[in-house]
């Protein structure tokens, strides 16, 4: 177990290094660069710009800049936002709650609904229900999330006027009901793709299990079909789903980014896009590293949980 953890953590560190290098290189090679923010709009002289570049260390070679950034990261100094001078970690922290709220709600919805769709589809394979579920999942997976978001806003906010079209709360209200009403649309839109993913994984896991010999053994005992399914099949089929939590984390994060933008949800996704358009590179890099760490830690935790839940697996 210990050696497994050490190995996985080693892999994670290596991956984070690669992510940071690629991210850093893309940002700094992209046209414009952080100074264009200062150059645009204001009437700064070239000298002022050079001075700012000197201060921020932007005039040094890329590898040197990267090394300095890395060293500072390692000592826990994530830098400050170019935009308002706040520490990057503070900026991320103030947006994290909204994102986690959205992702957790969507994931719970998706697991509850998606797993049942998958189980029923597998039990009644090729039935009308299964066919509809399969087509539905294909549609949900192939249509971009922002389109669903826009349609949802158009139908439920603009036309029906049932739910607010954006933000996390009504300014000055902030009651639980108000929070919930704001959460429903973005969480459902984000849950849509997630539900499709969960239902597909659950269906194939269940199909795999119902053809196993031990299911036949359970039937040979004379157990009623629901007991065969609930007592023998579902438990085995649900186990590998734990690792799906880790597998779909990147999709979930990507979906959250889009959903937050469409619904002006004040989370990390919005912050990320805003920071990119402001060329606020310390925040962009910060979010990149933070979410990469989140994904890696999440899937490590999922795998460990799987090992605890499945008596056959000994991590080694």
């Amino acid at each position: 177990m210990i050696s497994y953890l050490v190995r996985r953590l080693g892999q994670a560190v290596l991956l984070l290094l690669i992510v940071s290098m690629v991210g850093f290189a893309i940002l700094y090679l992209a046209p414009g660069g952080p100074l264009s923010q200062f150059a645009a709009g204001t009437d700064m002289s070239q000298e002022d710009l050079d001075r700012i570049a000197e201060q921020l260390g932007l005039n040094r070679p890329l590898p040197v800049q990267y090394a300095e950034w890395l060293l500072r990261m390692l000592t826990g100094d994530w830098g400050r936002s170019y935009r308002d001078g706040e520490p990057v970690l503070y900026v991320i922290g103030s947006h994290l709650g909204a994102t986690l709220q959205l992702m957790l709600t969507a994931t719970l919805l998706a697991i509850m609904i998606g797993c049942w769709i998958g189980i029923l589809g597998a039990i009644r394979r090729y039935s009308i229900f299964d066919t509809l579920a399969t087509v539905g999942a294909m549609v949900a997976l192939s249509i971009p999330t922002f389109w669903f978001g826009l349609v949802a806003i158009y139908v439920f906010s603009v036309e029906l006027e049932w739910l607010p079209s954006g933000n996390r709360e009504t300014v000055g209200d902030g009651s639980l009901l108000d929070l919930l009403r704001h959460l429903i649309l973005p969480a459902s839109v984000l849950a849509l793709v997630e539900t499709a993913i969960w239902s597909r994984f659950m269906r194939s896991s269940m199909l795999d299990v119902v053809n196993q010999d031990y299911i036949r053994t359970a039937r040979a005992k004379g157990l009623p079909e629901w007991q065969v399914l609930a007592g023998h099949a579902m438990r085995n089929a649900a186990l590998p789903m734990i690792t799906v939590v880790g597998l779909q984390l990147p999709t979930l994060l990507g979906g959250a980014l889009v959903t937050e933008t469409v619904f002006t949800w004040p989370g990390m996704g919005r912050l990320f896009l805003d920071s990119i358009s402001y060329r606020d590179y310390p925040v962009v890099m910060g979010i990149l590293m933070f979410s990469a760490t989140m994904v890696l830690v999440g899937s490590l935790l999922a795998d460990m949980l799987y090992a605890v839940a499945d008596p056959r697996i000994r991590l080694g």
Binding site: Y214, R216, G222, H232, N236
Partner: peptide, 19 residues
């Protein structure tokens, strides 16, 4: 099934529920 008539299968490795 399992009462008046019962069965032992070929594959002891896969015929028992692993969990």
């Amino acid at each position: 099934r399992g009462d008046a008539i019962a069965m032992v299968f070929q594959e002891p490795m896969t015929s028992l529920n692993p969990v």
